[in-house]
Design a protein around this nucleic acid. Structure first.
Length: 823
RNA sequence: GCGGACGUGGCGGAACUGGUAGACGCGCAGGUCUCAGAAGCCUGUGGCCGCAAGGCCGUGGAAGUUCGAUUCUUCUCGUCCGCACCA
């Protein structure tokens, strides 16, 4: 043992030992409690970044801790190895995606090992290998059998930069999750998974995990699923107000023309169904507004004035454009010159097409109640529609229980007093419209005088009795579109036959393997379509020539179930053996970035529920506890005087700081002054830090210790090179202690325990500190804190030094054990 | 616009269910060692006054509850994040 601490040497020695003894390999053991520690698997981009280091250092600390507590710990790793960067490499450098991916896995495996993370390498998996994606396809077929898969022509999110479709989750905020560019709408045929069938469960089962998940993730998922209670109401379309021939070319402000005539269109029993959460306001409905893509619009298309058609087309085009995030689209619309009948009061109201009505939500049509809805109000103002108040505020405001207690009758629930409904007081007090709160009904025939709460229930029931509506629940969540026009993914196991249509591949023919290579151009067509050997096949049903589906699956399919595969990674018959998985799953602790709060984490929950339904698992939720770690960020220096931001790497910048360490100014070597900021680490910004260099310079233990200590895990971590010195110093001090004492320890055996009131005050103080430390570290780790236990150990270390030698044996033993627990 | 979270030294951050605010680390200052530097070690480090003992102020701001508030309540200001016409 050296007197001085040479981390590189020590770490190498232990890493070799771990490798030889495969000491992190585990098998189920019925006699021991299990602990499944999981971190989000990395994409094999070619190199580890500090975000990975943080994620895996935290996970490894927990895994060690649980191991020391006597648990049988499963701590696996794998590769989320399908995805676009492999194709980009193919386009840019002509590399084969498979070879590129395999090489990166090699590189990163080496990095992870040098980092000294204690993984069970024998359980390693990789999504791009046929033995894995075979089961992506298997699941697809299982879902197909259960009616959870369908193909639909629809308007999808399309990223022009990445040339592929995106799911709703991946296009959240109107921006592509990968490249951050605005998303457009495109009409395309694609395969969907009916995640909406599980919407209720996805929402309700959150009660099971609420305690173990960060509140903000729970909230985001709740909002994303967005359940609202209300009612469907059918309005009957009455027909054209005037002859198409007469009105051509005549421009009009539609509001004036309301209520003249009612020539029925041929077979015009057409009913238009709307969804509303506010039936209580239906007497104030002064228009019906449809999405420009509503089926009724195409139904009456031929009878519409050309002018109206043009307008509708213009609106559609406007909506397909990428939307600016910050600005709201101006309300726009056009009167169809057709009226509808309000079933409650037989009022004839105009049917409009409006740009603010979404085809995907509810029924794609709404009743416009300008007096009690801000959007309708705006629309009505703009086009001069009637505004009729039918609810008035009740003194004292809120009629529904604050906090959204939801009363229930049968399957019908009163909507919670939720966002958008400012309850009474604000809008009510000054009598201004729109009044969007709940209150008391006025101008509503026999319903007048009821409170909103009563009316909501009674009117929905009434609609059901009379057959023109029913209580209803709708969701914001949409089905999951999984088709991707890409090469580097799992082929969708479908064969298109001219006679039989879309036919699923037979189980015994799985996997449908990707060809070795394909012309990858990035132009938005499926590369597989250009590989004849791949597409040409025969129909499993009728044996006639047929063509394979050429789209591949969203890579989020791979990551929806990978954590089960770890339990039985070599199984060739099933994704995993349910018996084996029963021991290990569910995952006890999951750690990863919160960028997946609504993507991966909602898909994985959905997948688990499906697996439960086909008998593979027997629980509802895959991840008992979730920890979302913050990003690792660093200082950036840039010049944006030329409009575009140009970054300068920190080592090329001369930074002046005051004597408290604050940045005073920064300039380039030739004296140009620069701005500075704290931003996410990345190569292009020059503020990235290479984990390998850190390990080389300071050792992996110091690197990891610093990452744990520097900030609470869930916070952002600002990388300052100087911070790591503290970790290095601490480890050196520990090393020195061990060096000084290990010979003494060698011949020593401790039997029984020392009396707690030892008469040596130094010993007494030290032992007390030691036990306090154990307690603090344990408590902190149980509550997923990693910075405070390190601080506690530093304190202990200081205390040992302060005691001026001669600490007796038991203490030092414990120190060492605790040190291991964290590093 | 709607919703959520958070405001503690120069910095990252401690403070368990209301009980000595600022643990631990970084940075900074002084000292020691050295021909010198680096590393190490020691001391100091919220602000103001004071040679010192000590005193006063202090957890974004204002008020309140309490013997006692970083912690609880109300208002207010600020920062960050999420959603984006979801009927």
């Amino acid at each position: 043992m050296d007197e001085k601490y040479f981390p590189q040497k020590v770490e190498k020695k232990w890493q070799q030992k771990w490798q030889e003894s495969a000491c992190f390999h585990t098998e189920p053991d019925a006699d021991r409690p299990k602990f499944y520690q999981l971190e989000m698997l990395p994409y094999p981009s070619g190199n580890l970044h500090m975000g990975h280091v943080r994620n895996y250092a935290v996970g490894d600390a927990l895994a060690w801790y649980k191991r020391l507590c006597g648990y049988n710990v499963l701590h696996p790793i794998g590769w989320d190895s399908f995805g676009q960067p492999a194709e980009d490499a193919a386009i840019k450098r002509g590399e084969n995606p498979r070879l590129w991916t395999e090489r990166n896995i090699q590189l990163m495996t080496g990095q992870l090992k040098r980092l000294g993370i204690g993984y069970d390498w024998e359980r390693q998996i990789a999504a791009h290998r046929p033995d894995y994606y075979k089961f992506d396809q298997w699941f697809f077929l299982k879902m197909y059998e259960r009616g959870l898969v369908y193909k639909k022509m629809s308007e999808v999110n399309w990223c022009e930069t990445d040339q592929t479709t995106l799911s709703n989750e991946q296009a959240s905020g109107g921006l592509c999750w990968r490249c951050g560019n605005p998303v457009i709408k495109k009409e395309i045929e694609q395969w969907f998974l009916k995640i909406t069938d599980y919407a209720d469960q996805l929402l309700d089962d959150m009660a099971e995990i609420e305690d173990g998940w960060p509140a903000h993730v729970i909230k985001r998922q709740r909002d994303w699923i967005g359940r609202s209670y209300g009612a469907y109401i059918d309005f009957e379309a009455l027909g054209r107000a005037r002859d198409a021939s007469k009105s051509a070319g005549e421009s009009k402000s539609a509001g004036e023309n309301v209520g003249s005539s009612n020539h029925g269109i041929a077979g015009s029993a057409t009913k238009i169904r709307v969804f509303t959460t506010r039936v209580d306001t239906i007497f104030g409905a002064t228009a019906l507004v449809l999405s420009p893509r509503h089926p009724f619009v195409s139904e009456v298309w031929d009878s519409l004035d050309s002018e109206i058609r043009e307008k509708i087309e213009a609106i559609r085009a406007e909506l397909a454009k990428p939307q600016r995030r910050d600005e709201e689209l101006q309300k726009d619309g056009v009167y169809l010159d057709i009226k509808a009948l309000n079933p409650f009061n037989q009022a004839e109201i105009p049917i409009w097409v409006g740009n603010y009505v979404m085809i995907e939500y509810g029924t794609g049509a709404l009743m416009s109640v300008p007096a009690h809805d801000e959007r309708d109000f705006e629309f009505a103002k703009r086009f001069g529609l009637e505004i009729k108040q039918v609810v008035e505020p009740i003194a004292g405001g809120i009629t529904l229980e604050a906090g959204g207690i939801v009363p229930e009758i049968g399957d019908y629930k009163i909507p919670e007093a939720s966002s958008g409904h400012n309850n009474g007081s604000k809008a009510g007090n000054n009598g201004k419209l729109p009044f969007t709160g709940y209150g008391k009904l006025i101008n509503s025939a026999e319903w007048t005088g009821l409170t909103s709460e009563e009316a909501l229930r009674k009117m929905a029931e009434y609609a059901r009795e009379k057959g023109f509506g029913e209580p209803a629940v709708t969701f914001r969540l949409r089905d999951w579109g999984i088709s991707r026009q890409r090469f580097w993914g799992a082929p969708i196991p479908i064969i298109n036959c001219e006679k039989c249509g879309a036919v699923p591949v037979r189980y015994e023919d799985l996997p449908v393997e990707l060809p070795e290579d394909a012309p990858i151009t990035g132009t938005g067509e499926s590369p597989l379509a250009k590989v004849p050997e791949f597409i040409n096949t025969i129909c499993p049903k009728c044996q006639s020539p047929a063509r394979r589906e050429t789209d591949t699956m969203d890579t989020f399919v791979d990551s929806s179930w990978y954590y089960y595969r770890y339990t039985d990674p070599k199984n060739s018959e099933l994704p995993f053996d349910p018996e084996i998985a029963r021991y290990w799953t569910p995952v006890d602790q999951y750690i990863g970035g919160d960028d997946h709060a609504v993507m991966h984490l909602i898909y994985a929950r959905f997948w688990t529920k499906f697996m439960r339904d086909i008998g593979l698992v027997d629980f509802n939720e895959p991840f008992r506890r979730l920890l979302t770690q913050g990003m690792v960020v660093g200082e950036t220096f840039f010049d944006d005087s030329g409009g575009k931001r140009q970054y300068f790497p920190p080592d090329s910048v001369i930074v002046k700081r005051d004597n408290k360490g604050r940045i005073l100014s920064a300039e380039t070597k030739d004296g140009k002054s620069l701005k500075y900021a704290i931003e996410r680490m990345s190569k292009s910004k020059g503020n990235g830090v290479d984990p390998d260099e850190m390990i080389e310079a300071f050792g992996s233990d110091a690197t990891r210790l610093f990452v744990l200590f520097a900030a609470p895990v869930e916070n952002e971590l600002v990388w300052h090179e100087s911070g790591i010195d503290g970790a290095v110093r601490f480890l050196q001090r520990v090393w020195k202690l061990v060096y000084r004492w290990h010979n003494v320890f060698q011949g020593f055996s401790y039997e029984g325990s020392l009396p707690s009131n030892n008469d040596n005050p130094v010993v007494r103080r030290l032992r007390r500190k030691t036990h306090q430390t154990i307690q603090r570290v344990t408590a902190a780790l149980e509550s997923l804190q990693f910075n405070t236990p390190v601080a506690a150990l530093m304190e202990l270390c200081n205390a040992i030094y302060d005691s001026n030698l001669e600490p007796e044996k038991a203490d030092a033993e414990e120190i060492f054990a605790m040190y291991e627990a964290v590093s």
